[in-house]
């Protein structure tokens, strides 16, 4: 692996990956709509789209990794990566903000409004506003138990918090060129992420089968599953990226000075961590 840093900003050659990615998203969108509208073969179109997307990601990231390993990325390119990753995480923050906003709005505003003064008297005379709620129209038909904080969620909090520590520990290893510490730290982080996902899957299963808590259980169910679901999806993505980092570390990539890919993944992981802590507090704990 040569790290012959150039002084020129690396400009890639023409590439087919972007257009392949566009085709993938087109198929995914069309397939998704077909599936939702129950049109035959929608699932296959969707699947084809996903497959092409994976193909594109393998190819594209593979190319980036080769460019990086060939030392084509100089300091300035590295700085570009840093800026872009920060802004990307900012955009993710705003995405979650929309759903946290929805939680705040329903909980603090719309549910209480539905249970007071004219709205209650004229439209929902039997509604008692309280959180959690399935809402005035569903309160009789939908019975659910809210998800408490002190079972799996608390364990998951511990898991994610410690995974933040292990990934940092791995980073220290990388910085002092201790490959063992790097690989060990990453492996532990991946394991923690996977256990988290397993527990969350169990929690969802439990919610659906035993607690009556579903996506359709009024705004409580909707905000609960959308927030924790999108978070879980981010954990899944993060874990996948960590696995890639682990494999690359084993393959001998990264040096103490040059390892932005690793750092980006750990930034992402910390971000997912912070979101979870917020979730834990406002979704599970402060019911």
């Amino acid at each position: 692996m040569s790290l012959a840093q150039t002084d020129k900003y690396y400009l890639p050659q023409p590439s087919l990956w972007p257009i392949i990615g566009s085709v993938a998203l087109l198929l995914m969108a069309v397939g998704g709509v077909m599936t939702m509208r129950e049109i035959d073969n929608g699932g296959w179109v969707l699947l084809a789209g996903v497959a092409i997307l994976f193909y594109m990601m393998f190819g594209w990231f593979g190319e980036v990794i080769r460019d990086s390993e060939a030392g084509r990325y100089n300091k300035q390119v590295d700085a570009s990566f840093r800026w872009s990753m920060s802004w990307f995480i900012f955009s993710e923050v705003m995405f979650f903000a929309a759903f946290f906003g929805a939680l705040f709005y329903t909980r603090v505003l719309s549910v209480p409004w539905l249970g007071e003064s004219d709205t209650m008297e004229q439209l929902w005379p039997t509604f008692k506003a309280a959180w959690p709620s399935a809402g005035p129209g569903l309160q009789d038909s939908v019975q659910f138990t809210p998800m408490g904080a002190w079972g799996i969620p608390a364990i998951n909090t511990l898991l994610l918090l410690s995974s933040g520590v292990t990934v940092t520990w791995a980073h220290w290893g990388l910085k002092k060129s201790s490959r063992t510490q790097l690989i060990l730290g990453l492996a532990m982080t991946v394991a923690l992420g996977m256990v988290f996902l397993g527990l969350q899957a169990y929690e969802y299963h439990h919610a659906y089968t035993e607690m009556g808590l579903t996506l359709g259980a009024g705004v409580y169910g909707a905000t609960f599953f959308m927030l924790t679901g999108f978070h879980g999806f981010h954990v899944l993505v993060g874990t996948t990226m960590l696995i890639v980092m682990l494999l690359r570390s084993i393959a001998g990539h990264f040096t103490a000075e040059h390892h932005f890919a690793f750092e980006a993944v750990s930034w992402y992981w910390h971000f997912v961590d912070v979101v979870w802590v917020l979730l834990f507090v406002v979704v599970y704990w402060m019911i």
């Binding site: 809402g135 005035p136 569903l138 359709g216 169910g221 905000t223």
Partner: peptide, 9 residues
């Protein structure tokens, strides 16, 4: 989901 439906809160 019932984000925008009063019946669900």
């Amino acid at each position: 989901t019932h984000f925008f439906n009063a019946a669900g809160g």
